[in-house]
Measured scan of single mutants.
Amino acid sequence: MQVTWGNVTVTFSNPEEAKKYAEKVARKLGGQVELHNGQFRIK
Rank of each mutant, 00 (worst) to 15 (best):
Q39F: 07
E23N: 08
K28Y: 14
K19Y: 14
E23G: 05
T11N: 10
E16S: 11
A22D: 00
F12H: 01
F12S: 00
K43H: 11
K24T: 10
V25K: 04
Q39K: 08
T11M: 11
F12A: 01
E34P: 00
E23F: 14
I42S: 01
N37T: 03
N37R: 05
Y21C: 13
N7I: 08
G6P: 02
W5P: 00
K43W: 11
F12R: 01
E23I: 11
A22P: 00
L29P: 00
E17T: 12
G30R: 08
L35A: 06
N7F: 08
V3S: 00
K28V: 13
V3Y: 02
V25E: 02
E34I: 13
G31Y: 06
S13F: 09
N7W: 08
I42P: 02
K20G: 07
T4E: 04
Q39Y: 07
F12E: 00
A26L: 03
R27H: 09
S13D: 12
Y21F: 14
Q32T: 15
T11D: 06
N7C: 15
W5A: 03
V8H: 12
R41E: 07
V8P: 01
Q39G: 14
G38I: 02
E17G: 06
K43G: 06
L35T: 07
Q2D: 08
E23V: 08
V8G: 04
Q2N: 09
T9I: 11
V33R: 01
V10P: 00
Q39N: 12
G38L: 04
T9G: 02
G31W: 08
F40A: 02
Q39S: 11
T11F: 14
W5H: 07
A22T: 02
Q32C: 15
T4N: 07
G6D: 13
F12Q: 00
Q39W: 04
Q32H: 13
W5V: 11
Q39P: 00
T9F: 05
I42D: 01
M1E: 03
F40V: 04
A26R: 03
Q2L: 09
W5E: 01
G6V: 04
G31K: 05
W5N: 03
E23P: 00
F12G: 00
T11I: 11
T11C: 15
K28L: 14
N7T: 11
M1T: 15
K20E: 12
T11R: 10
F12P: 00
F40N: 01
Q2E: 09
V3L: 03
W5Y: 09
H36F: 12
V8Q: 08
E17K: 11
G38V: 02
E23H: 11
F40D: 01
Q2W: 06
A18L: 02
R41W: 15
E17S: 12
V10D: 01
R41H: 14
F12N: 00
E23Y: 14
Y21R: 01
A18R: 00
L29G: 03
K19W: 13
N14D: 12
E17M: 13
V33N: 01
T9R: 06
F40R: 01
K19L: 14
N7A: 08
K19A: 09
E34K: 04
L29D: 02
I42H: 02
G38C: 13
P15E: 09
G38N: 08
W5R: 02
M1P: 06
E17D: 13
S13E: 11
R41Q: 11
E16P: 04
L29Y: 10
S13Y: 08
M1R: 10
Y21D: 00
R27Q: 11
R27I: 09
R27D: 07
A22W: 02
E17C: 15
L35K: 06
V33I: 10
K43L: 15
V25G: 00
E16W: 12
E17R: 10
K19D: 02
K24R: 13
T11S: 12
P15L: 12
H36M: 11
V10H: 07
T11V: 10
K20M: 12
K19T: 04
G6N: 08
E16L: 12
K43F: 14
G31A: 10
N7R: 11
V8L: 08
I42W: 03
I42G: 01
E34A: 05
G6T: 03
T9K: 06
Q32Y: 15
V10R: 11
S13A: 12
S13W: 08
H36Y: 12
V25D: 00
K28P: 01
R41T: 13
I42M: 01
N14S: 13
T4Q: 09
G31L: 10
E34C: 14
G6W: 12
P15I: 14
T4L: 10
F40W: 15
V3A: 01
Y21A: 03
N14A: 07
G30T: 03
Q2K: 14
K24M: 14
V33T: 03
K20L: 13
E16R: 10
V10G: 01
A22G: 02
G38S: 04
E16N: 10
H36I: 15
E23C: 15
F12L: 06
E34V: 13
E16F: 11
V8I: 14
R41I: 15
G31M: 09
G31F: 07
K28R: 14
T11Y: 14
M1I: 14
Q32V: 15
K19S: 07
H36V: 15
V25A: 04
V10N: 03
M1H: 13
E23R: 07
E16D: 12
Q32D: 06
G6K: 06
K43M: 13
R27W: 08
N7E: 08
L29R: 04
N7K: 11
K24C: 15
K24P: 00
Q39E: 12
F40S: 00
N37D: 11
Q2T: 14
A22E: 00
Q39D: 06
G30H: 09
R27C: 15
V25F: 05
V25P: 00
G30S: 06
V3Q: 00
T9Q: 05
R27N: 08
V25R: 03
K19H: 08
K28W: 15
K28E: 11
F40G: 00
P15A: 13
V25Q: 05
A18N: 00
K24G: 08
K43P: 05
K24E: 13
Q32M: 12
E34T: 08
